[in-house]
């Protein structure tokens, strides 16, 4: 960097586009904030937060499978509405919930489905005449079904992310007989992800604070891959340190995790209601097909 002249273009040429380091730092920062906000939401006083994590996990898996089996776009829309209602009853802003689902998975599904709605891909009677890009009736129906299926599934999955603390999820996995070694690894992974994300954010902010001009693509790439290598070394060093700490605390190779979750009547009622809803949706779907 310091061996070459700084050109006006290096300084952004009057544009206010953030640097590579700043963009990465902000993106990583958003992920760190997301983890912390999810923990806050998961401890709020709401319907799903009061349900046993095992019941919640099983119900959400049931809804995910149901969403994949439904064929009617109306019922898929109803599933998304149910997820929205559950979110609202669980202290989650319906607007934030809808924005999150439609802004990521929904938008991607729309972009992917629109070409499939044209007569070029799906032949059939014209629904929207647009010349060579006219939309066909079966194409539009297929595209709408795909988009609604994706948002119904994404909404269901988001309920896990936003209403269940990571520690509760791990507890549920333990009680569902997932091997302790896997649960322990997942627990450690989440902690280390947050730690490594903070390190990554700090590395990029430090770079941003001492940079007055963007380097060339090759220079930036060298710097980025050099920092990745640093994260590799730090990860392996931390793994050794964690292992030494485990040994110091008497770890002998076997693990036994204590699950703190307790199930009750309310949890069974919730699970039964979820199963009945899924069965009803599938029954109506099959009846509509006949």
């Amino acid at each position: 960097m310091c061996e070459r002249d700084i050109r006006p273009a290096d300084l952004g040429g009057g544009r206010l586009r953030p640097s590579l380091a700043r963009r990465t730092a902000e993106s990583v920062g958003r992920h760190v904030s997301e983890v912390l906000e999810n923990e806050d939401l998961a401890t709020a006083d709401g319907l799903l937060q009061r349900i046993d994590p095992r019941a919640k996990l099983l119900a959400i898996l049931l809804f995910s499978v149901t969403a994949s089996l439904l064929r009617s776009p109306w019922l898929l829309a109803a599933m998304f509405a149910i997820a929205l209602a559950l979110a609202a009853a669980s202290a989650v802003s319906p607007l934030s919930f809808a924005r999150k689902v439609w802004g990521s998975a929904g938008l991607l599904a729309v972009l992917l489905a629109v070409p499939a709605a044209t007569r070029l891909v799906t032949p059939g009677p014209v629904l929207v005449p647009l010349g060579a890009l006219s939309l066909s009736t079966p194409g539009v129906l297929g595209a709408v079904t795909l988009v609604l299926r994706v948002v119904a599934s994404a909404g269901t999955a988001l309920l896990i992310v936003w209403t269940m603390r990571w520690s509760d999820l791990l507890g549920a996995l333990t009680r569902l007989k997932v091997p302790d070694v896997i649960v322990a690894t997942l627990a450690m992974t989440q902690k280390q992800i947050v730690s490594l994300m903070r390190t990554t954010q700090q590395i990029h902010l430090a770079r941003e604070s001492r940079t007055i001009a963007e380097g060339s693509v090759a220079e930036n790439r060298d710097w980025v891959t050099g920092r990745m290598a640093f994260v590799v070394r730090k990860s392996i060093k931390t793994a050794d340190d964690v292992y030494d700490a485990m040994l110091a605390r008497g770890f002998s190779g076997s693990m036994c995790l204590v699950a703190r979750v307790q199930g009750g009547r309310r949890d069974w009622a919730y699970l039964a209601a979820a199963a009945a809803t899924a069965a009803a949706l599938l029954g109506i779907d099959r009846a509509m097909l006949r």
């Binding site: 990465t24 993106s27 990583v28 992920h31 070694v181 322990a184 690894t185 997942l186 450690m188 992974t189 280390q192 992800i193 730690s195 490594l196 994300m197 990554t200 980025v224 920092r227 990745m228 994260v231 590799v232 990860s235 392996i236 931390t238 793994a239 050794d240 964690v242 292992y243 485990m246 693990m255």
Partner: peptide, 17 residues
């Protein structure tokens, strides 16, 4: 366990660069 956890964490974080 620690190596897998750190490997997974690294795998996760590398996707953010």
């Amino acid at each position: 366990v620690p190596l897998m956890a750190l490997g997974a964490a690294f795998s996760f974080v590398i996707m953010m660069f």
